[in-house]
Structures are given as C-alpha cells and as structure tokens.
Write a protein that binds this DNA or RNA. Structure first.
Lengths: 150, 150
DNA sequence: CGAACTGGTCTTAAAATAGGACTAGACAGT
DNA sequence: ACTGTCTAGTCCTATTTTAAGACCAGTTCG
C-alpha cells in the first residue's frame, strides 16, 4: 500500500519528516552543503541509483529546497543549489552529525568533523532560554493544537 | 535490492540517518518525548502497522535509543522509555520541528508548539562560536578524514 | 468464568528501491 | 565534420519494504 504520509499533520516534526525524512534527501542536502552541485557529482558520491536521484532532486526542487540553475562553468548543463529554505536545513544536518559523532563511532574511530572559521571543531547546538541556560527536553512541553473537525 | 546502508560511513550524518533516518523511528522518538510509553499508545497515535512498529521498536532498543522496562502502573506489561542516547536525539527533533514550522505551514495554519518552562515558545537552536555570534553554514567547513584502505 | 484488552506474529498486495541497459544532446579532439 | 566520450537523464526488472488486516496467546476486568 501507499506509504503513509504526514503532509497534513498538526505536528511540524511529522510534516518535516514527510517532506525530507526519507533515506536520501538529507544526504543530498548534506552533499549540497559540502559544495556538490551537479547530478553526476551527487550520483557518484552517494552511489545512488540514477532513477532515485532524479526523483529525489525533483521533489527537493518542488519543495523549494534546491533550485536548478545554469552551470557555473559556462557549459550548457544545469546545477542544483540550495535555496534559503535549503540553507535552513543546516541545524538538522548538524544535529544529526552531532548525535552520530557521539553515539555511532567506536573510540578512536575516525570521522569527518565540522570546523568553525578558525579551524576548531564547532560546539554543540543549544536551545537558548531567557535565563541563559540552554533548555533540555525536561524543561519543555508541547502545546497541542485543538483537533480540527472536518 | 536491499536498501543501501551507511552504517560504516565516515560521515556521522550518514551513520545517523542509517540508524534513525527512516519514516517511523523519529516519529516514535517524538512520541516518546511527548510521554508515550506503551506499544498500543504508539500504535494508535501514529496509525502505524503493528508489524512495522514491532520492527522499529526492536531496532530502536537494539540501538540503545529506547529500553524496555516493566510497566509503571504495576501491570504485567512492558513499556518503552528513552535512554540517555534517546534523550540526545532532542536537538534533532527540535531542528525538524523548527524547519517544519518555518516552511511547511501556511500563514495562520495551526500547529503544535514547543514551550519553555514559563510557557513561552522556545527560541531557535543556535550553533555557538567562541566570539558569541551563532555560526551559520557559510562559516563552517567539513574536514574529511583520509580514505582508509581495506 | 467469559469478554475485552494488550502486545504481538503472520500473510498478502502494493509500492519503493537498486541496479543496470539504453538514449539524446553537449563537448573535445582530430 | 566525424568520432568518441561525458552528462543527465529515462525505462525496465528483480527484490525488498511497507501497509493493512487476520489471527493468537497471555492479562486484566466485570
């Protein structure tokens, strides 16, 4: 049966996952953050089937995460670049990176690292509060919206 | 063919997506953050097929994101609760929420909201820098690790 | 005790994915 | 201008994954 969708959910987490929560979209976006722009670059770097890549790029463009522009090298080809909406995915990619670094590597196992302008590893993402102390899960609660009748 | 895996990737983003980047895992985790604990609660709230839920809960337990504990109400049943590793997923869920809120709702369309202890909507996740100004994508670069020969 | 609830397993049909063959247009070398 | 290669796809097929529901054993409720 058709995969369950959450495009109409009241929860933004569900909608976000519906849009970009598949196996490939965020890896394509990660590669775009790393500077990849061409179809063939994504395809070679990810090892993704070309049909899959075509479909994913199309939905990312439809979502407004990527846009197709004329190639920067003057050739007649197209390139895919991140839009504003795509750049806003940065915290998602960073949070995934930080969780992966913390929990998915053995001691001493090498992995890529995100550096700040000075070449230092970046710190942890924080959720600021008025008081200055970062909020953690137990500080927060979700306000649900009223269920709308149809 | 079998879905491509990234469990051995050098990139923590890829490993994280390999572990929890499917259609259901993060929604289950979101529900766990919202206080759900029982198989039936997850199943009813998500509308997920029971077989899928069984499989997802099993892999989340194997990953150490959830653990099974005796039910808190004294019954003979089990409950699933977040571990430390599970709680560390909070920034991922929050970043998805914030992107969804910003880009996936029409003006005025209602959605659930994350509140701080004072009942105020929380602020944006930030990536702190030494200088105090939050880092954005264009400030950062990824240091790749040397490709290891096998 | 019997009924309903809980937490699953198993089966089946439909959809998504991986992988590769194939193709049209662009480009580079001769 | 001709040939070969590169680019960016499309299309096809085999396999895997998912959705949905039937079924079932142990637990709790009345």
């Amino acid at each position: 049966m058709k995969r369950t969708g959450f495009a109409k959910a009241d929860c933004p987490v569900a909608r976000a996952l519906d849009a970009i929560g598949d196996w490939w979209s965020l890896l394509i976006v990660r590669d775009a953050f790393d500077g990849l722009r061409r179809f063939g670059d994504f395809q070679k770097n990810l090892g993704i089937a070309k049909g899959m890549l075509t479909a994913r790029l199309r939905t990312l463009v439809e979502l407004g995460v990527l846009e197709q522009v004329a190639a920067s090298d003057g050739s007649a080809y197209q390139e895919y670049v991140l839009t504003k909406r795509g750049h806003d995915l940065f915290p998602i990619v960073v949070s995934l990176r930080q969780w992966g670094e913390a929990h998915l590597y053995a001691r001493g196992e090498p992995h890529s690292v995100l550096l700040d302008p000075a070449g230092q590893a970046v710190g942890q993402l924080v959720l600021p509060s008025k008081g200055g102390k970062p909020l953690v899960w137990s500080d927060t609660k979700v306000k649900k919206v009223a269920v709308r009748k149809r």
